[in-house]
Amino acid sequence: MTSPQFSIRIPLDVEQRLMGYVKQNGMTKTKVMIDALAHYLGCAEDVPLTHRVTELEKRVSALEAERTGK
Rank of each mutant, 00 (worst) to 15 (best):
N25E: 15
R52A: 11
A38M: 05
L37M: 10
R52H: 01
R17Y: 11
K23C: 11
D35S: 07
D13E: 12
E66V: 03
R17V: 08
K70M: 08
E66A: 13
A62K: 03
V60G: 00
P4S: 04
T50G: 04
E45P: 01
N25C: 08
H39E: 14
M1P: 00
N25F: 09
T50P: 06
E55L: 04
H51R: 05
E15H: 15
T54C: 05
L18R: 13
G26A: 05
V22F: 01
C43A: 10
C43Q: 09
A62G: 04
L12I: 08
V47A: 03
F6Q: 03
E55Y: 01
L63W: 08
I34A: 05
Y40W: 12
L49C: 05
A36Y: 06
P48K: 02
H39P: 03
R59T: 11
P11C: 04
G69M: 02
V60Y: 00
E64Y: 02
L18T: 13
F6P: 02
E64D: 07
H39Q: 13
K31S: 15
A38L: 02
V53D: 09
M19S: 13
A62I: 04
G42K: 02
T30E: 12
I8T: 11
T68H: 07
A65Y: 01
K31A: 15
I34H: 02
L63F: 05
G42L: 05
T2W: 00
T28P: 03
N25Y: 12
G26W: 00
E45F: 00
K29L: 12
L49E: 14
M19T: 14
Y21T: 14
M33Q: 13
T28N: 03
L49H: 12
F6K: 02
S61Y: 00
N25P: 08
K23V: 11
A38W: 00
K29Q: 15
A65D: 14
S61V: 02
A38Q: 01
Q16E: 12
I10F: 07
L41G: 03
D13A: 09
T50K: 13
M1Q: 01
T28E: 09
L37P: 03
I8Q: 05
M1T: 01
K23D: 15
S3R: 04
K29D: 14
G26Q: 06
R9I: 06
K58M: 06
N25G: 08
L49I: 10
E57C: 04
L63G: 08
T2F: 01
Q16K: 14
Y21I: 10
L41W: 07
D13Y: 08
K29G: 10
Y21R: 11
D35P: 01
A38N: 04
T30H: 04
R59S: 12
E45Q: 11
L37I: 13
T68N: 13
L18Y: 11
E64H: 04
K70E: 15
E66S: 12
V14C: 11
E64L: 05
A62F: 01
